[in-house]
Amino acid sequence: MQYDAPVASIRLVGVSKHFGDVKAVDNVSLDIADRDFMILLGPSGCGKSTLLRTIAGLEDPTAGEVWIGDNMVNDVEPKDRDVSMVFQSYALYPHKSVQANIEFPLKVRGIGKAERAESAKQAAEVLGLTPYLERRPGALSGGQRQRVALARAIVRQPAVFCMDEPLSNLDAKLRAETRAELVALHSRLNATFVYVTHDQVEAMTMGNRIAVMRDGIIEQVGTPKDVYDKPASVFVAEFIGTPPMNIFPAGSVEAADHLVGARPEHTHIASSGVAATVALVEHLGHEIQVVCTIDAEHRATVRLPAGTEVPSNGSSVFLTANENHRHRFNVETGLRIS
């Protein structure tokens, strides 16, 4: 099941969505290219879901323009936008069989029974649901339900897929498996995906571009490599990567009035440098993470290979950061200094 149907780019121009005094989305502009796998990433309450719902047509923007392909769709009903949506809760109809669930978008479009069944069968096959077509969603596992939701989304071959944290209700192992399957599905369908998540691992592994959001605005848009290697702000630096980037106080690593950041893999314990106290040593098997306290507001993590001799809790150490892996940020704005 693949189509070169009218797949579409999405363009947001100055989009805002206010709920009373709350600016859920505040003057956001974003270009999502045709056949992109765009991730909207951010902590809860950052406005990423609202932005997605604005694209799908479930929210009317307070200001700004939403374009899908060559059409301004602000006043276009969701059904005419050629988008489908997958919800975190899957929103399957519990009283309908899996087949009837998958067929539903076709049924409401008045497509004949035989054709509906054929399309549903194809969609079910793509997602490995063929043996379950007769069952009710209640008789399926969480992972299977999630696939039914996906099958229902792909069955009418929309140009754009909107997904709102579709993996959040799965356990960790299944989530990792499904990540890979979604990437495969994206390349198989060759459609535009817009995917909302708060999980930076999902963002890094699935998307070809990531928009990092905070408080209703987009902090940075770029490839996963971009946002990891060149975070545009302290917020992005600390949000992406586990453990997050270490941020050193101004004047501690470099004698200048800016913050210095370094990934834990580029931070080392040395004989001189920034003074810190070891707060926690975590043995993860393949590596050791040493969490150090620099002052009341700054902590830093150092990754050491397994088997290395590590300082004990409470001991004083000195930290340094590789010269060519330092990130510099403005103290006031938190923005990257290039």
Partner: peptide, 28 residues
């Protein structure tokens, strides 16, 4: 659940379709 209505809405179901396919069965 609100999402059931929203899902049906995005899929193109009008008011009456949502009432008969979503609301009525779920409040049965």
């Amino acid at each position: 659940p609100k999402e059931m209505h929203e899902s049906a809405y995005v899929d193109g179901a009008g008011g009456w379709m949502r009432f008969t396919n979503v609301t009525l069965p779920l409040i049965s």
